[in-house]
């Protein structure tokens, strides 16, 4: 009994060390999304250099929803990955032009290339609020029913694609029995 009493503070200390050690490696800038497993918010808005579209115009398959802006430097870093995905054609990429100006957005797409099927115009950031966006770039994985299944905050490069998105997509396809 006395021995046990001696070990209680030691066990407590070890537990705290583990807790704080883990805490050191948590990223406080990455917030969990509240929209996981919830349908994508409704929209009916103009698109960059395009017509007014709504949720009905979204792909009826797994797709990416990428939050971007012409002012956003990290968006340029992830741009090649988005271009590659669009060239390969397996996963459509939809854009949300977040807190930007349409003319600047058009210039940006012309200069760098356009990986998006279309880009929802969100000059006011109002659609971004419904998505729980807090800054470009962010990328959402949406399933064929229009339900958000995963969110990545900040740059989506090849490492993130391999590590986070491919397993998430594989899992979604397993659920619905689609070919890999």
């Amino acid at each position: 009994m006395n021995r046990l009493k001696f070990f209680i503070p030691v066990i407590g200390f070890v537990a705290l060390v583990i807790l704080f050690w883990r805490g050191l490696y948590l990223d406080p800038k990455t917030l969990p999304s509240m929209l996981i497993d919830k349908p994508m918010p409704a929209f009916q808005t103009a698109t960059v250099n395009g017509p007014v579209l709504s949720n009905d115009d979204l792909p009826k398959q797994i797709f990416l929803l990428n939050i971007w802006g012409s002012y956003c430097l990290p968006c340029l870093i992830e741009h090649p990955t988005l271009m590659r995905l669009t060239e390969e054609g397996d996963i459509p990429v939809i854009g949300v032009n977040y807190r930007d100006r349409e003319d600047l957005a058009i210039d940006w797409l012309e200069e760098n290339g356009n990986p998006f099927q279309f880009s929802i115009l969100d000059e006011s950031g109002r659609f971004g609020i419904d998505l729980g966006v807090y800054g470009a770039p962010e990328t959402y994985l949406v399933d064929e029913n229009g339900v958000i299944r995963f969110r990545h905050v900040s740059v989506l490069d090849e490492t993130v694609w391999q590590r986070d998105f491919l397993p998430a997509i594989a899992e979604l396809r397993n659920e619905t029995g689609q070919p890999q």
């Binding site: 800038k29 006011s124 950031g125 971004g128």
Partner: peptide, 18 residues
């Protein structure tokens, strides 16, 4: 949500403005 350690009234961040 973007600048983390300020409230909405003290923040100049875009999302705080919205």
């Amino acid at each position: 949500p973007m600048c983390q350690n300020t409230n909405l009234s003290g923040s100049t961040g875009g999302v705080a403005e919205d």
